[in-house]
Simulated scan of single mutants.
Amino acid sequence: MPRIFKSGDYGKKGNYSTDKLKSWIGKEFNITAGHVGDWVNNGYPVTAIPVAGTCKVTDVDNEGYLIGEFAYNSLGESIKDKYPNLSIGIGANGEPNHLAILGYAPPHIKDLDQSFSEFSQDLTSIEKTETIEFAEEDAQGKIDEFIAFFRTVDVSKVNYKALFDVLYEKDDEKYAVNKLKDLGYTVEKTAEFSQDTLKSIAEGLGLMLSAKPVNNLTPQEIFVKAKAEFAREAERDETKKKLVSMFPPVLHKMLEFAVDKAYEEAEYSNIIEFSEDDKTSMATKLKEFSQGKSPFKELFKNYTESKEFSETTTSETTDVDKRIGGYYE
């Protein structure tokens, strides 16, 4: 029969003596295909988590190992060899309430569908538990030896961060969070920040907190809106290109700003009354203007018609052209 746990001091997760383990003899609980928390945190209800079988505690051996008798269902039989490592779940009463097959849930969470319905049970009662990993028969002994060794090592001479990463991956995040809280830190999950916490953070950064607008559009409505936006942007770029080419460089930045502003979604459909008979949007007005002739052509024509060119040389005419921006026919 397999060893499923070992007596010892697991720090924040509790101290489990041999006598404590012996009091569990006769208890029976589910074997879950992965941690309950892995499924729940990915949006699956506790009633849909696949169960791989049952475990009954039968003994505690002379080395302090808890011995269990397994009864796998077909799901458990198909995964037990590929995922041999186990993690016991301890409830609020300090007694085991499930045994998780480690490593299965993360790669298979995306596959959860009706095919698991025959293996699922209501696991609501064990949703909030402390899980303790038991990977190999002598794993805890090796860890105890490593801890004793590591206490004698100068951590400034080793890559401590890499070690922490491994420990964090092997353990659940609850222990790390509790450790930080013991040191006086406030730890909250970003996705679960309360409104008051978010407001406090925003005020500390000098920002104003506002609610994100909710998008209630259907996929079809989103497609129509996106299509209209692309068409508006294409029209804006074409209008800007034509309009800018009609004016001297000194006015280009101002014209580009005017066109961009007129083609913003809120302004694009905003109707302006230019006269009693002329009511249209600024975007439409700029587009119409861009399709006409440059006003500098008429300006140059009026200027040259009012000037007498009795003995003006070609060079002088060119200078006049340059002074008024070079817009002439």
Rank of each mutant, 00 (worst) to 15 (best):
N215F: 09
E229R: 14
E95L: 14
E145G: 11
I88D: 00
K179I: 12
R151A: 09
Y168V: 13
G53W: 01
F247E: 08
A234S: 08
F116Y: 11
A135C: 08
G204F: 03
N178I: 02
E229P: 00
F296I: 04
Y263R: 04
R151E: 10
L99I: 08
A202R: 04
E316K: 11
K225L: 15
S245C: 06
F150W: 12
G64S: 06
E276K: 07
A52W: 00
L183Q: 13
L102H: 04
R236M: 15
E136K: 11
L123T: 14
P213Y: 06
F5V: 05
E28H: 02
T186Q: 15
P96D: 03
Y168E: 14
V51Y: 02
V244S: 02
P2W: 05
A92G: 09
T129C: 09
T131V: 14
K189A: 12
E63I: 09
K261V: 14
Y65G: 00
Q291C: 02
A135N: 12
E169Y: 13
L243I: 07
E69Q: 11
G53Q: 01
G141W: 09
M208E: 09
I88R: 00
K128Y: 10
S194V: 04
M246R: 10
Y104I: 09
P249M: 05
A100Y: 01
Q140L: 10
G326H: 05
A52I: 05
L75A: 02
V46Y: 02
E188G: 00
K174H: 11
L112V: 13
S78C: 11
P2E: 12
E77R: 07
I101L: 11
I201F: 14
K212P: 00
G91P: 01
V40F: 05
A228Q: 14
R151P: 00
K227Y: 05
N93F: 01
T131S: 10
F29M: 08
L209T: 09
C55Q: 04
S74P: 04
E265N: 11
L75E: 01
N93Y: 06
Y327T: 11
E229A: 09
E188S: 08
I147A: 10
I101N: 00
F149D: 11
I201L: 13
A148W: 10
G64K: 01
V166Q: 07
K12V: 07
K181V: 07
G94T: 05
G68E: 01
K212W: 03
K20F: 02
D59M: 06
Y16R: 01
E267T: 06
R232Q: 07
E221D: 12
A283S: 04
T304L: 14
A100T: 01
H98F: 03
T313L: 04
P106T: 05
L299K: 14
N302I: 07
V187E: 03
I4M: 06
F116N: 03
V224M: 10
Y328N: 13
E235S: 15
K189G: 08
V177T: 08
D172R: 05
I126P: 00
K307S: 09
F300C: 11
R151F: 09
A52D: 02
E298C: 05
A234I: 05
F29S: 01
F5N: 00
I324Y: 12
A139N: 10
Q114G: 15
T312D: 06
L299I: 13
T186N: 07
V224T: 15
K22W: 07
K212H: 10
C55H: 00
K293T: 13
G11K: 10
